[in-house]
Design a protein around this nucleic acid. Structure first.
Lengths: 241, 241
DNA sequence: TAAGAACCCCCTGTATACAGGATGTCTCGA
DNA sequence: TCGAGACATCCTGTATACAGGGGGTTCTTA
């Protein structure tokens, strides 16, 4: 693996794990010492992470770890929602070629199976997360727009904005399975709408589907312990309530 | 001005003006010779332009000028549409503080004045473009979401996706003033919806407003001469019709 | 003449040296 | 004791040297 990619991965991990505090300056030389590569790959990684939104540029030059408010989380979810809604709309209108649509159908069936399986909650949850990621991936592929795909990737780069961001954070709550069942009902509805070439319905349901994350966020906030499960939770600034 | 910023600006200009052909490799050393700076700023500019979508990464390393299909243009417009729709929705729901809303009102009034003025068509058009940019800027500011603002900036980075991208391209057509009048009616409707705190209406109208660009695109395509007016037209690959 | 191999050149990835600017601290004087 | 000035330090911006890899071209041989 190239130094640049390696550095990017490690640095992203440091930020997401909270080993670098939000607002803290991230100097190139510090990271050179810490990661054992030269300034060049570090520099490249910093620029990249800035464009991902995990770092923000400092006025006097250099970068600092980004800091997010609860409002930002909600906005990020909403932004992903409209983009995924558009993707579902495209998928429906552009008519899936049968084989790709088959994969989507199989995916939804697999989620049913995973939820119904007689396995420990945590295992069912992690299976759900994997399949859910796949579902969302299929939708954006079916949309057939590289441009939209790029934009959506950007919107989901912030971990708490991604489709499965909050799922694991509430595996321990009592309503856990019920929320997953609701989500799965929406998956089916989206699939149905795409099969019917009903772009409007596909978009509306998909957008509503994203809003489940709002509920999950609220629930996680009520139970701060669950926030520990949320990747990137360290970046959230709670004091501005 | 720093070398990096300067290089970024110049390189972006070269691409948009079509001096670098779509698909063409952009090697660092070539640009070093052409722009008279060292590899470091060139490198930084290349990474930046890749994240803007104007360059695409090559599998074997390096970058090439991006190439867009007509479908891409339509998708880009639609993506901007949903994001601006969301921004209008936020603006309406989060209730504008009076002073910011006043600025929006003044802007819409100014567009009325510009359209009604007794000036040459071209002058009225360029005034419209400036005020239109301002209107769209106010909307995203009123939305009060730095995250959405960033995402929208990204979506409008491609020149033909920006709010005024196609306006100048059709200043010469007979329907020119009529299109502007339609657009202005929508501006008023959005303003009204925001004043009424009607997020749904604001969003719907704003999204429809973006779709005017679709019409403008069609009209420009019918009249290839007009495409010359379109910034970044050189990047469009027409053969894949 | 054709095919294969070797060679050369171009290009990126990586490291590092150097300069200029901002910041913070220490010391000296009032 | 407080303030101001000078100095040291840290950090980024910039240039450039070096290495390794890939592709094209040319030369040689069958």
């Amino acid at each position: 693996m190239s130094q640049t990619v390696d550095t990017l991965l490690k640095l992203r991990e440091l930020i997401l794990n909270g080993e670098l505090a939000p607002g803290q300056r991230v100097s190139e030389l510090t990271m050179v010492d810490r990661l054992g590569v030269s300034r060049t790959p570090v520099r490249a990684a910093l620029v990249r992470l800035e464009s991902e939104g995990l770092l923000e540029p400092l006025a006097q030059g250099g970068h600092a770890v980004a800091r997010f408010t609860e409002q930002d989380l909600r906005d990020a979810i909403e932004v992903r929602g409209v983009l995924e809604g558009l993707a579902a709309n495209f998928a429906a209108r552009r008519g899936a070629e049968s084989q790709a649509l088959d994969a989507l159908r199989a995916c939804v069936d697999a989620i049913d199976a995973a939820l119904g399986a007689d396995a420990p909650i945590l295992e069912r949850f992690s299976q759900y997360v994997a399949l859910n990621e796949r579902f969302h991936g299929y939708i954006v592929d079916l949309a057939g727009s590289p441009l939209l795909k790029r934009q959506l990737a950007r919107a989901s780069a912030l971990p708490f904005a991604s489709p499965s961001g909050f799922v694991m954070a509430q595996a321990a709550t009592p309503e856990a399975m019920a929320v997953l069942a609701t989500a799965q009902a929406q998956h089916r509805a989206v699939l149905e709408a795409i099969e019917d070439r009903d772009g409007g319905r596909a978009e509306a349901v998909m957008r509503e589907h994203a809003r489940l994350a709002h509920q999950n966020l609220r629930r996680a906030l009520r139970n701060r312990a669950a926030m520990g499960q949320l990747r990137g939770a360290a970046l959230i600034d709670f004091e501005t309530t």
